[in-house]
């Protein structure tokens, strides 16, 4: 247990430090990299709780895809660091207010529910026992695809709508753009591409313009 506690404090301290650095870092790319570090430590905490499936999904989805796209966008931005710093001081009170409200809410929650150090054992009791042969992933699937199937489907639909929205916003049909049509290229035969003409001796022939494609 001592080792688990040690790892807990390691991951917790690093995730808090990384979270602070996301806000404090001057360079936005560094901020995103610290965000990735925070995700990693959160995944470590999930593993300590015995939720290895959630930990892996967190890394695949958030670190492997979402944060990469963040980084992609941030790298492309032309950032003026001086302006950004001025913005930090201007926006700090709002940020502190929001953060303070969340903190107060969390504290109230703990006060209302009672602060119990044995909470980890209670959480563990809701999961399948380690010797039951049912893995975490299986248990999650059994619940997700039976009891919460409608919520799951609705979440999928919302994502689909968002995806279609993004495509509609960026889709442009420009007229006059020549695009490669691989089917047309493959279907092209010597008949379409080559025109055999008889050139009279001493004369010349200008091929018809529609013979070229």
């Amino acid at each position: 247990m001592a080792l688990t506690a040690g790892f807990f404090y390691l991951f917790a301290v690093f995730s808090v430090i990384a979270g602070v650095m996301v806000i404090v870092a001057k360079n936005p790319v560094h901020a995103v990299l610290f965000l990735v570090l925070a995700f990693f430590n959160a995944a470590g905490l999930f593993i300590l709780l015995g939720a290895e499936f959630l930990a892996m999904i967190l890394i695949i989805v958030y670190v492997g895809a979402v944060a990469v796209l963040f980084l992609f966008v941030v790298m492309m931005l032309d950032v003026d660091f001086a302006e950004l710093k001025a913005g930090f001081i201007k926006n700090a009170p709002v940020g502190l207010l929001v953060g303070g409200i969340v903190l107060v809410e969390l504290i109230l929650l703990f006060v209302a529910r009672g602060f119990d150090l044995g909470v980890a054992h209670k959480l563990a009791a809701a999961m399948p026992a380690a010797d039951s042969g049912v893995s975490n992933t299986e248990a999650l699937g059994h619940i997700l695809y039976t009891k919460y199937i409608y919520f799951f489907e609705v979440a999928g639909l919302i994502l689909l709508v968002a995806m279609i929205g993004a495509i509609v916003l960026t889709l442009q049909h420009k007229i006059g753009v020549r695009r490669q049509s691989i089917a047309a290229q493959v279907a092209r035969s010597p008949k379409d591409g080559v025109e055999v003409v008889k050139v009279p001796s001493g004369g010349s022939i200008i091929p018809a313009p529609d013979g070229q494609s």
Binding site: V36, E52, F53, M56, I57, V63, V68, L71, T137
Partner: peptide, 20 residues
């Protein structure tokens, strides 16, 4: 690991960070 395949998938998706 219970989730060995996912672990490998996660690490292969992390490879992009070194490059970026």
């Amino acid at each position: 690991l219970n989730v060995g395949v996912l672990y490998l998938l996660a690490l292969s998706s992390l490879a992009v960070y070194g490059i970026i």
